[in-house]
Amino acid sequence: MIGHLRTWPIVLALTIVSAPLVLMYVFLFVDTISNAPAGSFIPNEFTLEHWSFLWETRPGRPSIWRVTLNSFLFATSTAALVLVISSMAGYVLSRLNVPGRTYFLAGVMVLHAFPAITLIVAIFLVLQVVGLYNTLIGVILVKAAIDMPLGIWLMKGFYDTVPWEIEMAGIQDGASRFTVWRKLVLPQVKPGIFALGLFAFLLGWGEFILPQVLAPSGNAQVLSVYLAGLIADDNNFDMNMFKSVGLFYMMPVLILFFVFQNRLMNIYGGGSKG
């Protein structure tokens, strides 16, 4: 299908338009372990000084490890919640005879497209009233709720591919619907569950606006808010240090993405949507 036409002009054009991105990400690495003379970007010395944030806590800021732990808790908890809830609800939408099932499915599709961020003012006020403002639990619940429609939608798609006959056979073998789900169907969608879990983890790990608004300070601060705070602080401007924190923050994402890129690209592209 590529035919006899030359491909190098295309490759060249793509390389040129991709150059700024590549440049930015290359210097994300380079700048964290080197210094360059003023006004230049060619590094002239190797250093680890930009990584000092790992062992020195800056005054007035929480320890990086505390913040990292928070980010980890935040991302894993939202991923776990999304997984549990959507693997159950997705199954119902795919397979079970429940009154109102079609309406719920339509609702999930609408919510899936619906921008939950518009509700943040109301959610902010509700969390303040119920006392979950500035707590990890509050923002975890909100994030899980926002990611859930996509999760349900994807899980329904995965369940749809499991042959009905397997479930019928299970029922004939005497298993309850619950056992059929747990022992026979769930193992068939394991790859899907894994991909969704990974995806939800990355979404949680990168999330900024929700923690920024709902849990901005103190013990509930996550990495994104911490880093944004560092950058916004005009008194300590140190781009290389920002980048080091950034790289530290982004490392898990890069590793997970490069290992599982094919599965993730499908989901990022909308998965089995539409």
Binding site: I85, M88, Y91, V98, A116, A145, R177, F178
Partner: peptide
């Protein structure tokens, strides 16, 4: 647990609760 309806309602419940709390109510 063997009935589609019973299991379905139980399985939908958490999702419904989140939808009500963080979508409908807001």
């Amino acid at each position: 647990l063997s009935s589609s309806k019973g299991l379905g309602i139980l399985f939908l419940l958490p999702a419904v609760v989140l939808v009500v709390l963080f979508f409908l109510m807001p």
